[in-house]
Nucleic acid binder design. Structure first.
Length: 553
RNA sequence: GCGCCCGUAGCUCAGCUGGAUAGAGCAACGGACUUCUAAUCCGUAGGUCGCACGUUCGAAUCGUGCCGGGCGCACCA
């Protein structure tokens, strides 16, 4: 909507003030904090000051005279040192309400726009254990980011990279195998740096029941370990999928690292890079010239013992993504991997893509608090607290909302007490309550007047004159822009703020106005229409996050 | 030592491609339920935007330096 307004303003202005074209890119259209300052404001006059060499106020006055008569605006004002404030006409807002009512839980979506195809890779946890809180945060951030990009018109593929090829999978196999053997020989040695979690014992027990003979009859221990590794990997991958389902996160593509090696993808990528003269040999190892693209030093991709580094697999993986033809890709990583980014970026750039083809969002640590104390370990398992444990303790919606609400690049303190609190302290309930209240109004409306949400009613929207009503309409009108902006800036956490603000405007309205008005049916219908719009917009936002739209609380 | 991130109200955080008196929630204090759910609303109080320079009509926002906290600097994955 902002861009439509901007274009409209520019078209008219250019005819009168040609200098405007010089500053076109710098023009900012924004929604002022104070509604008295208009529905939109712009800094055009300040930008023109330097070129035209007149004070901003004077220029603003000239622009006001030009734009004032456009039908989109009811009023144009000059304010402050030269701000231009625009007031939109009622008809404009009414058309937005119709959209909100008609589009259901897909308000403002631009899926048809077809802006391009992108890939978002997230979670990508090693299948060597259950998901932890950091994974959960990454999952929520990645999911919402995917949702808002597809909202704005991108085709988004969500991908989980399965690290099923390296040493840690081997270690998993050794750990399971050792626990398996310990069932019969308690003294069987456990690998020093093995996985100690209880889930390893669970897997071993399951194997013992199902495959005891098979494993014991295997010729070499190596085979048995590999068998255990494979079994464990699949078992844990299923667990990971279950855990993700708990917070409503799903993937389109599960990409196996092992697949890269088994299908010669690594050699293929290396061959491609060799042709680009990006690779050399030194000390018996193969090196990639990542310094060309800004890395601190060149990196080994094949060790002197002939095996590939993790980096090599990752290069092949991204080479594969590159050949799938995405317009750009986004990776979501734990912040402890940020030092790894320059080398991957260099590798990717050597394929021949621009620097901003690959973006990485870093997820900072999640710290858990209870009774004012940091909780580090789970009492149940003696290990780190898992995502599943947290969801079981506080519920899905608070977990999603809290993980989603902070900028991913800042540390997150998760307070279990607040998440459990069913009160004003808890923002999740605050937004859900707004939805439940509207549902409640419509339940009552059905009983007393036979009107429900499915009733196809039109109404006289010009009756919505109250400040509270206008404030809601204005905000609804702005929401599609705000979601677009959140996507563009890779800031999925903005969605919770938008939801909260809408809920807040609604609660304020609810406390000061009645909706079911016996003696003024026209006004009642207009207000119910507005509520229906708010409800749909809330559902749109809830759907993006995966929050449940509760009907009653 | 080098690199990345963070430092905004007592607490948790928004705001950061420069823009109008720096925002919200919690905590504190005071109000609003015979009414469609008070899990709500209204009000009061609370700030050298880590510090210092610089850039300019204008800096929480951009630049440089410093201070404090987190993380990373493998022929590991």
């Amino acid at each position: 909507m902002k861009s439509e307004i901007k274009n409209q303003i520019l078209d008219v202005l250019k005819k009168h003030i040609p200098e405007v074209s010089q500053i076109e890119d710098k023009i900012v259209i924004e929604i002022p904090k104070d509604e008295k300052l208009g529905d939109f404001s712009t800094n055009i006059a300040f930008l023109l000051t330097k070129i035209i060499k007149k004070p901003p106020v004077q220029i603003a006055g000239q622009i006001k005279d030009i734009l004032e008569n456009l039908p989109t605006f009811s009023k144009v004002e000059v304010a402050g040192a030269g701000f231009l404030n625009f007031f939109l006409s009622d008809n404009f807002y009414h058309s937005i309400l119709h959209k909100a009512v008609n589009e259901g839980d897909r308000f403002g979506e631009q899926r048809e726009k077809n802006k391009g195809k992108i890939n978002i890779e997230f979670v990508s946890a090693n299948p060597t254990g259950p998901l932890h809180l950091g994974h959960g945060r990454g999952a929520v951030v990645g999911k919402i980011l995917s949702e808002i990009y597809s909202y704005t018109g991108y085709k988004v593929e969500r991908e989980f990279y399965i690290n099923d090829a390296g040493n840690q999978i081997r270690k998993l196999g050794e750990s399971i195998y050792a626990r398996f053997r310990q069932i019969e020989e308690p003294d069987y040695p456990f690998p020093e740096d093995g996985y100690h979690g209880d889930y390893i014992k669970d897997i071993a027990k399951e194997l013992y029941l199902l495959e005891r003979e098979k494993i014991l009859s295997m010729l070499s221990e190596d085979d048995a370990v590999e068998f255990c590794a494979n079994y464990g990997k699949n078992y844990l991958l299923d667990k990971i999928k279950e855990d993700l389902k708990l917070i409503d996160v799903e993937f389109d593509i599960w990409y196996s690292e092992k697949h890269l090696y088994e299908h010669g993808k690594v050699e293929e990528a290396i061959k491609f890079l060799k042709e680009k003269d990006m690779i050399y040999e030194k000390d018996g190892a193969l090196w990639l010239k990542t310094t060309i693209y800004g890395d601190d030093k060149d990196r080994v991709i094949r060790k002197s013992d002939g095996s590939y580094t993790y980096f090599a697999g990752d290069i092949a993986y991204h080479f594969d993504k590159y050949r799938r033809g995405y317009d750009f890709i986004i990776n979501i990583w734990g912040s402890d991997h940020h030092g790894y980014f320059p080398r991957l970026k260099a590798a990717v750039m050597s394929f021949g893509v621009p620097e901003d083809w690959i973006k990485v969002l870093f997820i900072q640590l999640v710290k858990l608090f209870k009774n004012g104390q940091e909780v580090k370990m789970s009492k149940r398992s003696g290990d780190f607290i898992t995502l599943r444990e947290l969801v079981e303790e506080v519920g899905k919606d608070p977990v999603i909302y809290f993980f989603a609400s902070k900028d991913s690049d800042t540390h997150l303190n998760f307070d279990i007490d607040i998440a459990l609190e069913k009160s004003s302290e808890n923002p999740v309930f605050y937004v859900q309550y707004a939805h439940a209240r509207i549902s409640s109004v419509f339940r009552e409306a059905k009983e007393r007047f036979g009107i429900d949400l499915e009733t196809d009613f039109t109404s006289q929207l010009q009756l919505l004159k109250e400040d509270a009503e206008k404030s809601i309409m204005k905000y609804i009108a702005a929401i599609p822009d705000l979601i677009n902006e959140a996507a563009l800036k890779n800031q999925p956490h903005k969605i919770t703020g938008i939801t909260y603000e809408l809920a807040s405007r609604f609660h304020k309205y609810y406390n000061t106005h009645k909706f079911l008005i016996e003696d003024d049916k026209e006004l009642m219908m207009a207000r119910l229409y507005l509520l229906k719009a708010v409800k749909n917009v809330l559902r749109t936002l809830f759907k993006i996050m995966g929050i449940t739209p509760v009907e009653r609380m």
